[in-house]
């Protein structure tokens, strides 16, 4: 089990009158190769949780284990942890800074102490994984499109060869095609390389389409944990905490209410189409 959280709590401004519990007794296990979606309204604790996974924040109480080792243990190598658990922040393109895309992606592996040749090989591999064409390698990272910048930034993290990749809203501000492209690319990474992926997202439709498991955060706790179908079956609970099911789930519920015998667990358009066709046929 690469990631285990054992009763992790985090308090902001602890020991002051402003103390606020951002994480409240989180217990969680994430197996290798899983694609996990993390949803929750702004301020629910998602980002705080993610920053515990690569040691950017230290739990006020409880333990975080990575590959069986306590990351807050005395002799634990945090630098190594950060190369194993890659974190892609929101709007990662703001962190691009080098003279061209290729040099930018080389920065991480070179910092790990790899030789120029090794770093370049890794950069090439990472850029291929995110699907950036060779023509942009030598372009300034500031002159490529928004979707390309986003991918270049993700490649920069992939070049560190992490075992776990955490992405905080990787599709914010992208056009619909750009959203699909990035998410498909991430899904492909998971299936091809066995990477464990945590995706923080505000789009229920995207999460429904791509992930294996959803964690719903609320008030610093994990409120729901299950497959997308299981989680989106709890529509009322999700709405109570400012979230929602995918639009298509609401459509199915409305159809059922009007007497069409459809399955209301449906969370993608593909499933919905089949389900409605079947129900209409049964009606004759």
């Amino acid at each position: 089990m690469p990631i285990v959280l054992d009763h992790v709590s985090y308090v902001y401004e602890a020991d002051t009158p402003l103390a606020r519990k951002a994480l409240d007794d989180i217990c969680l296990e994430i197996p290798d190769g899983q694609f996990v979606g993390v949803i929750g309204h702004t301020g629910s604790g998602k980002s705080t949780l993610m920053q515990h996974l690569n040691g950017l924040m230290k739990a006020t109480s409880g333990h975080v284990y990575f590959n069986g080792e306590d990351i807050d243990g005395e002799k634990y190598d945090k630098k190594k942890l950060r190369s194993r658990v890659g974190l892609v922040f929101q709007y990662p393109e703001h962190q691009l800074f080098e003279i061209d895309v290729f040099t930018d992606v080389c920065f991480g592996p070179k910092n790990l102490g790899l030789t120029q040749e090794e770093a370049e090989a890794r950069a090439r591999e990472a850029l291929e994984l995110v699907g950036l064409p060779e023509e942009v390698y030598r372009q300034s990272p500031f002159e490529i499109s928004g979707g390309q910048k986003r991918r270049a930034a993700i490649a920069g993290v992939l070049a560190m060869k992490p075992q776990v990749l955490i992405l905080d809203e990787p599709t914010a501000g992208l056009d619909p095609k750009g959203r699909d492209e990035i998410l498909q690319q991430i899904k492909r990474l998971q299936t091809q390389t066995g990477l464990t992926i945590l995706l923080v997202s505000h789009s229920m439709e995207d999460v429904a389409e791509y992930v294996d498991r959803i964690l719903v955060m609320n008030d610093g706790r994990i409120m729901l944990d299950g497959t997308p179908k299981e989680v989106f079956g709890h529509v009322e609970e999700l709405e109570r905490v400012g979230l929602a099911a995918p639009q298509v789930t609401y459509i199915m519920r409305a159809l059922k209410k009007k007497g069409l015998e459809v399955d209301v667990d449906v969370i993608t358009i593909r499933e919905a189409t089949e389900e409605i066709l079947k129900a209409l046929q049964d009606r004759g």
Binding site: P176, G178, Q247, I251, I269, A272, T273, I276, L277
Partner: peptide, 18 residues
């Protein structure tokens, strides 16, 4: 044009195709 339609529109479109 790299855009999309609302999910309900897409669902109706798929049903119509079928």
């Amino acid at each position: 044009l790299r855009l999309d339609v609302p999910q309900v529109t897409m669902l109706a479109y798929e049903l119509k195709k079928r």
